[in-house]
């Protein structure tokens, strides 16, 4: 039986809360765009699907596990591109409370510098080696 990328994606990243699995979320299109944009990922999706479809095993999850153990390098690149596409999706980012869009110019605020944190370490005598 020939499996499609969407089916594989739904197993790797299943539904959660109100989100469908990654395949039904439609991230495959993004993955293909990315794999065409840089040769780090070129051929990764196509080769992975071809290899999965060649594995004689009825169960899709088992097939993925076999690919993972037979082709660890290819599989880790496949996971990379899946995760990048999935966690760049705005609906997924909303679920994990990540602000969508670029990191700049908004940035984040963190508490101000407070010298009191140094109270204990300041008591320590100099211990650099004098030579």
């Amino acid at each position: 039986m020939n499996h499609h990328i969407e089916e594989i994606l739904n197993i790797i990243l299943p539904p959660i809360e109100n989100l469908p699995g990654a395949g039904d979320l439609g991230i495959a299109k993004e993955m293909f765009r990315m794999s065409n944009e840089h040769d780090r990922y070129s051929g990764v999706i196509k080769n992975s699907i071809e290899l999965i479809n060649k594995i004689y095993q009825p169960e899709i999850t088992e097939k993925i596990k076999i690919l993972e153990s037979n082709e660890p390098k290819l599989f880790s690149l496949l996971l990379e591109i899946i995760y990048i596409a999935y966690y760049s999706n705005v609906d997924v980012q909303k679920r994990i409370k990540w602000r969508p869009g670029p990191l700049q110019p908004q940035g984040f605020s963190i508490q101000k510098w407070d010298e009191k944190v140094l109270n204990q370490i300041k008591k320590r005598k100099e211990f650099w080696k004098k030579i």
């Binding site: 944009e37 760049s88 969508p100 670029p102 990191l103 700049q104």
Partner: peptide
Amino acid sequence: TNSKDWQFLQKTK
């Protein structure tokens, strides 16, 4: 840092 694609760029370009 200026791109919404920063996670992809981090691993590639």
